[in-house]
Amino acid sequence: MEGPKLDVEVAGIRFLNPLILASGVADETGASMAEAVRMGAGGVVTKSLSLEPREGHPNPCVVEFPYGILNAMGLPNPGVRGYSDEVEEYLSTTRGSAPIIASVFGSSIEEYAMAAGAVKDLGVHAVEINGSCPNARGLGLQFGQDPLVIEDLVKEVKATVPIPVFFKLTPACSSIVDLAQAAQMGGADGLVAVNTMPAMKIDVRTRMPVLTNVTGGLSGPALRPVGVRCVYQIANSGKVHLPIIGAGGISTWEDALEYIMAGASAVQIGTAVTWGNLDVFSKIKEGMMTYMIEERIGRISDMVGSAKGVRS
């Protein structure tokens, strides 16, 4: 008998398994991203890229909690041009075995579109619009909380690139479905849910916020139930028909399956790569395989959105 199949197709892109390295984590270089694939990732998302290089915020830029990580890197990146060697190295090392999605941001809709146009030329397989980074004033989140802006932003990026476009949603909103629907109206090919949650930490000795940026984004286990809820609500809204990539606090195979059963076709893993190691990918794959054999499930897609409450 053939074993269960882990490969998935999301917005027309095929991944050998549904585990994707999330943006901004261990993806500074082509070699780092290729390392994630060697360790079992089915795909990767680049560091969030802008047209021009950015240094990010001064330290401290992370705070660790037992249940999550608060970070405010401030979108450091070498700019799309500065990153081209990294994509090239990634593509030549992985030889098409794992798709690469480029995360982009800008300080205006035009800048987003220009960054997307520039990454397309690097040979990436898709674009992820980072419309939800909470860590840089005037960038990211301000675009991602307003449905009208989301629609225009996606429309503009779609008009610029022929490859699939994903929109990454913030959990900091009153209606995740409204935001998802706006991305759909703009023509997005898929959604990523969710980005980090705006949060902060104050040190009581110095009475200072620890992060230089004052606030940051919370990720890790604390975020997972929020992310699962967002994915479930989008998938069960009856209004949004786009494939969803789930993200937020996934570190075990159960966590990944929770997102998949909530309605995600694939998942992204970030914080777990820093707390565990890159072997988190192979461990989750093994766990999913065992589960699928036990439960007699042939394909990942058979489980997508399979969680249904008595009242959904």
């Binding site: 901004g24 984590v25 261990a26 070699a31 780092s32 992370v62 660790e64 450091p76 970030g270 914080t271």
Partner: peptide, 20 residues
Amino acid sequence: MKCGIGLCDSCSASGKRVCM
């Protein structure tokens, strides 16, 4: 190094994170 915990990859050297 920015984060020291393998998140930001600022310390990347040939695909390895110096912090981790």
